[in-house]
Design a protein around this nucleic acid. Sequence first.
DNA 1: CTGAAAGCGCTTACAG
DNA 2: CTGAAAGCGCTTACAG
Lengths: 329, 329
Amino acid sequence: MFKIKPKISDVAKAAGVSPTTVSRVMNKRGYISEETRQKVYDAMKKLNYIPNDLARSLYNKRSNLIGLIVPTTANPFYGELTARIEHFCALAGLKVLLCNSLHNAEKEAHYWEMLRRNQVDGVIVCTYNRGLIDVSEQMPTVAFDHYLSSGIPVISSDNYAGGELAAATLIEAGCKNIVHINGPAELETPANLRRNGYEAVMQRYGLPAMTYEIRSVLSQAEAEAAICALFDQQPQMDGVFASDDSIALKVIQEVRRRNKRVPEDVKVIGYDGTEFVRQHVPELTTIKQPMITMAETAVQILIQQIEQPEKALEKEYVHSIELVRGNSV
Amino acid sequence: MFKIKPKISDVAKAAGVSPTTVSRVMNKRGYISEETRQKVYDAMKKLNYIPNDLARSLYNKRSNLIGLIVPTTANPFYGELTARIEHFCALAGLKVLLCNSLHNAEKEAHYWEMLRRNQVDGVIVCTYNRGLIDVSEQMPTVAFDHYLSSGIPVISSDNYAGGELAAATLIEAGCKNIVHINGPAELETPANLRRNGYEAVMQRYGLPAMTYEIRSVLSQAEAEAAICALFDQQPQMDGVFASDDSIALKVIQEVRRRNKRVPEDVKVIGYDGTEFVRQHVPELTTIKQPMITMAETAVQILIQQIEQPEKALEKEYVHSIELVRGNSV
DNA sequence: CTGAAAGCGCTTACAG
DNA sequence: CTGAAAGCGCTTACAG
């Protein structure tokens, strides 16, 4: 049903040369007479020849394949990040093997093995994974906003400055009772620096810092219940700094559900600033991560590890954040 | 810096057997004495052996790799679809090579060649592409909501019923001047059936059908301008059926910008019902596509083409839609 | 039950 | 400037 693919020897036969010569023409290596080159090109065109990258990679020990592990592209933050990373990979001639781990350790382990079997040149990881430490030593790796192990460089936004800026923005807008919602502190993620930044500013202004921990593994319904409980426990709350836009949107929903108004009664600021949220919920004030630049850095640092393994790496590549004003503050 | 990978001959040496035997143990083929099997397993474990799928694929002429071409995962609809498709692929042992074509014909052409070079077993295409017709004949292909060429099966939601349901929902809610916003009619996409369904219902009720075409290639700013123009030209408009949720959200923004209310002054219904929108903008009434089932069908039909090429294919696999009630109607 | 040999499609020293 | 040979890591007839 599907046509047989011509191989290099077919091209060689058609052009009346050896496979070696065809290979050299394709790879533009060594000296080739113009006449031979043309014959080979003609034969390739005529046969509609497409080289087999599997065979090439096998010999070259370089697949130009990279693994990308994210929780899920269904989340617009990771969907956008994935698109940006894939974009810069494509520019660099790298192909992306996509893995949605759903924060499931077992799935992540399977994906890691799959990636190694497929001889990927490196991996970009956007999830937290305990079992990663050993396996990653065997492969160039870049982590996105998560500390994995000492040797793995981390790409992140300036979470501390982001936390400071969020708190300062709410305080300047007149908030007195500001609550910060974040993931659990045990996970040593850079995102926890947002908390530190927030708490530092609160202290500086002599205001009480209140950080509510919501486990990100919670289902949507559970997250909503947790936010509901927060409102019950903090009736005088007039400002919320949510650790991501998704939570911020849920907080806004809850404010409205209680027949209060944003920003008059409760001011809300988020974190991330994905394109989708900025386009479709422009009223949300948020701290924007420079996603494009971060994706570019991630790809670039991965390539550096692959091509210049001797070159020293920073522990962390921090990118500056930016306040995007909607009208939720 | 990174450890050398052991190969099958290293395992064979460590276990005191031939490479053939190791291969047979790995693939559970042929008869192997329990003792030998155990020796091999021990050696594999000791060396931390991981097979090289590149070499396997090369010999087997089956890579278990598939290509997925979407406009961009930054759009939550495609982000979610990508996640669902990857999920079902992983269950079936297929690995996904991700391609974000950004509706760019040149990029798509490059991605197609890249996928063929990498010997993918098949491709799932979620974009409209003219140049596809020839190339797809050479590879199992499934199209998502787009007619590509006669031989390629299409996975879609019941767009016609969706259009009918959207129109009927607005009419029942009392709308008299309902506008439908859709992509250009020239593109023969199943999405145009939404328009047909809408127009049929309007006619049935003796109401004027008004379809506004917005090119999806428009930038966000241009889309907003187009929506703005629509409001200017249709001051008595009291209902909008948007061809996707993204447009619907923009319409709602425009209604508010004009100090009108949804649903009191203008009722709005969208199409898609992605998880993100349902979770974060639950007020939007929309026609939900059964994304999970559609992803499952896409993967299943692709596998059928790969493994049972002789088995007949339907032209189209239509999935029933569902009304999700928010309070925008 | 086990192994030597050939081959998947490509590339690269090494001769000429 | 060009080609024969060996090898990338694996698998599968074919012998034994």
